[in-house]
Amino acid sequence: MPHIVKSFDDELARLYDTIVTMGRATRTQFALALDSLTDSGGQTAARIAASDVEIDRVNEEINDQVLRVLALRSPMADDLRLVVTAMQMATGLERIGDYSVGVARHATALSGEPPRSLGSVTRMGKQVLAMLTDVLDAYAERDAGKALAVWKADRQVDETHSSLFRETITYMMEDPQNIRPCSHLMFIAKDIERIGDLATNIGEMVYYLATGRPLDEARPKGDTSSSAGVL
């Protein structure tokens, strides 16, 4: 049902559209970052830097819109949830953009000497890209079920990350020559893993937006790579 005050509808629709736009830009940004892993030319990195500026600009625009709606409309119920999640989503997407820049930066450092674990990293990147795509679809469709599925998929990414961590350590121990490229690869893997976490957070936001209830089951955690026991 539309609002009695029509301009309020317009403002909420605009905010929603801006988030969808920002989501699309962020997804493209991350896809480019993944391309840069296999693209030796290095032009991708320049495109990423440019699109990061655009993502930051849209983030500011969303913050302005949110402040305006909060101050002028005092939104309630599902409107309130839309506005609050918009602000959180923008922050999450902006950070995904930053991590994508990180991926591309380390990829540039790698060019010319692709390490052996690159295949696993590319696979992990595809998993996370699928999560990001799905969670943005979930937002566009306000689909709680889809959001929950993304939230659950994070476990797999964490597992891939753990095994990749062990694999990389093994290569580094085999030959000190591998240490430099493998460290870059580990940074890349960590950035991708963080993007997976952020997509999972966005899944929680979409779930809350759609249902009004927090997704409060214990967060799925399969990643033990940071704990000492793994070595």
């Binding site: 049902m1 009695i4 005050v5 309020f8 939104p75 309630m76």
Partner: peptide, 11 residues
């Protein structure tokens, strides 16, 4: 109905 009222969407 509550939702419609508090969000200003009353039909």
């Amino acid at each position: 109905l509550t939702q419609g009222y508090i969000t200003g969407r009353f039909g």
